[in-house]
Amino acid sequence: MNLKTDKVGIIGSGSWATALAKILLENVNEINWYFRKQSTIETFKKNKHNPRYLHEVEFDTSKINFCDDINCIIAHSDILIIAVPSAFLPTVLADVKDLSGKYILSGVKGIVTDENLLVAEYLLKYFNVDHDMIGVLAGPCHAEEVAREKLSYLTVACTTEEKAMKFTQLIECDYIYTSASDDIWGTEYAAVLKNIIAIAAGIAHGQRFGDNFHAVLVSRAIQEIKRFVDQVHPIDRDIKAPAYLGDLMVTAYSQFSRNRTFGSMIGKGYSVKAAQLELNMVAEGYYATKSIHQINEKHQVDMPICEAVYQILYDKIPPHKVFGELTRKLC
């Protein structure tokens, strides 16, 4: 990887992809960027901002090579940043012909639901992308604060910290501090789990639980996450690090958290479909809830918070009944 000569491409056009494009252009002269619709590209070029997300971020479009052909973006890029909702990843990559030789930094904060695969596992299985070529981007970081250049922290996880440090050079700037990790599996699973916990926090908010309960919920949640990641990938890790505890906290508490907002709607009595329609954005935790439930059928980790969310979203048990039982389990 050579940042002076390598071309960088982005696959994804949502808020997180837009935030990452802003960060990347602090460090590279130009980027290649895939958008599904040519009409969106034309509107972007005309108005100098993404027509659907983070309107306040104005881009110098002379530094962006837009294209609606994903294979063209891939062919002309040495490093690929993938930032699409995990549930849609197979559809987005359906026409991809070859990813060999590409360095890939995954900003996907979820699990590929059809087969319950982490993104790194999915890329290995279907595109033969070795784990040594993959980096995983972890928070805590919201796209909306990146847009406002609020100081934020990101962690890049690779098979070794040395490889992760190379990726960090892409994204570190005046308002983004970075750290490196060798825990691909732990950071990916933690990113999946914190979205489920954020839904639980939102449900609690919708049910009018107070700050005291939220504090207990989040403190028990990090223990739940630790039990799970230690079971599925047992290595020495500090669960209190920003990529785990920090990402959980910001997702469970922030006004920008779409998973928390989705959960709050459910807690107030919305159906899943109604909440999804009103949110008008993808709440990764909804899909992750079912995947983690299925994965945990094998591991049998004690996960009362994730199980409570599953009962509400998929078994359709009323939130007040499920949380009535959960409150006693959190003692």
Rank of each mutant, 00 (worst) to 15 (best):
K316N: 05
E56Q: 09
D230I: 09
E224D: 10
S271K: 08
K4D: 11
E297G: 15
L89Y: 06
K290T: 14
H55R: 07
I312P: 02
H55G: 11
I235D: 01
S86E: 03
C306Y: 10
S219M: 06
N29A: 07
H214C: 15
K45L: 00
E172P: 14
S257G: 07
Y253A: 03
A221P: 06
C141Q: 12
S264V: 13
G107N: 04
D68L: 02
A200I: 08
I225G: 03
W185P: 12
M1R: 08
V108D: 06
Y34M: 11
L3P: 02
R208N: 15
N259Y: 07
E149H: 13
N29M: 13
N280G: 14
I10H: 07
D183E: 03
K63E: 00
E325M: 10
S86M: 01
L217F: 03
D211S: 14
N212E: 10
G206C: 05
I81A: 07
K150C: 14
A190R: 01
L170Y: 05
L154I: 15
K102L: 06
G12M: 00
L279S: 06
S15C: 01
A191N: 14
L54D: 04
H76I: 11
N2E: 03
I199L: 13
E121T: 00
K290C: 06
D315C: 04
A180N: 10
R258A: 04
A275C: 01
Q300F: 09
S271N: 05
Q300N: 09
D211F: 15
L118M: 13
K273P: 04
R260N: 08
Y34P: 09
L89E: 12
K316A: 08
P85A: 03
Q207C: 12
A288F: 08
M165A: 15
Y153I: 13
K321W: 01
V216D: 09
A215W: 02
C72H: 06
L124W: 09
L80F: 05
F59Y: 00
K37F: 11
D247L: 02
M303F: 10
T159L: 13
E162A: 11
T327Y: 13
G101L: 04
S257V: 03
F59W: 00
D315M: 07
G101M: 02
F127M: 02
K7I: 12
N71F: 03
F127Y: 14
Y53A: 04
Y244A: 10
D183Y: 08
V156G: 06
V28W: 03
I134Q: 13
I10G: 05
L99N: 00
K329S: 12
G9Y: 01
A157P: 03
Y314N: 01
L313K: 03
N212K: 10
N195R: 07
K321R: 13
I295E: 05
R148H: 13
A147R: 04
M303L: 14
K22L: 07
T251A: 09
V229Q: 12
M133E: 15
M133Q: 15
A94S: 15
L3E: 08
N47Y: 01
G246C: 05
I79C: 02
A191K: 12
Q207T: 06
E161H: 14
G186T: 05
P318D: 12
D302Y: 11
S77L: 05
Y103I: 08
K46S: 03
A198H: 05
F66D: 00
E42V: 00
L330Q: 11
K329R: 15
R237C: 04
K298G: 07
S62C: 01
L137F: 10
C67M: 11
R36I: 13
V250Y: 06
V301D: 08
L279T: 08
